[in-house]
């Protein structure tokens, strides 16, 4: 059976697919889905040929800004996003980690200026290793999988 059909279609809105299942609830809280009034459908632990196991959410009548998608990319890099209008997919894109992550992640160094001053944090994604980010201010490196969000 088509996996997509396990969760009903939406007329207008956003579908976020290929979310690693262990990241689903973080994604929900990051996007504030629990506070939405529109219909949200959540598919958890679906079978995926590519990933073995995946999750997806379909959110009616809601589209996301680039800033929101940058935040999403930090928690779940490489998810797929489809924009739905009149039951049709009008745009498909893969969410990618931006080169600079601004105002999303907390620096793990308590002596970093960003933890002591009301300011936005900023990280560069390591060129060698996409799982590692480096604080623009104090140069402390962190593994993306273990970061705390602002």
């Amino acid at each position: 059976m088509n996996q997509e059909l396990m969760v009903a279609a939406i007329e207008n809105g956003t579908v976020i697919d290929h979310i690693p299942s262990n990241k689903l609830f973080e994604v929900i809280s990051l996007l504030g889905l629990q506070d939405l009034k529109s219909t949200v459908m959540i598919g958890y632990n679906l079978v995926s040929q590519k990933m073995g196991n995946k999750s997806l959410v379909k959110i009616a009548d809601r589209y996301f800004s680039d800033a929101e998608l940058d935040r999403l990319a930090v928690v779940a890099p490489n998810v797929n996003l489809s924009i739905i209008k009149d039951f049709n997919v009008v745009e498909k894109r893969q969410v990618r980690l931006p080169k600079d992550i601004v105002g999303v992640v907390k620096c793990g160094n308590p002596k970093c200026i960003t933890n002591n001053e009301p300011m936005k944090t900023r990280f560069h994604v390591s060129e060698k290793n996409n799982d590692v980010i480096c604080c623009h201010y104090c140069s402390r490196e962190q593994v993306l999988d273990k970061v705390k969000l602002v």
């Binding site: 002596k111 970093c112 960003t114 002591n116 201010y137 140069s139």
Partner: peptide, 10 residues
């Protein structure tokens, strides 16, 4: 001179 790292860059 500052005791916090990254202070001068900021």
């Amino acid at each position: 001179r500052h005791y916090l790292e990254g202070a001068a860059l900021y």
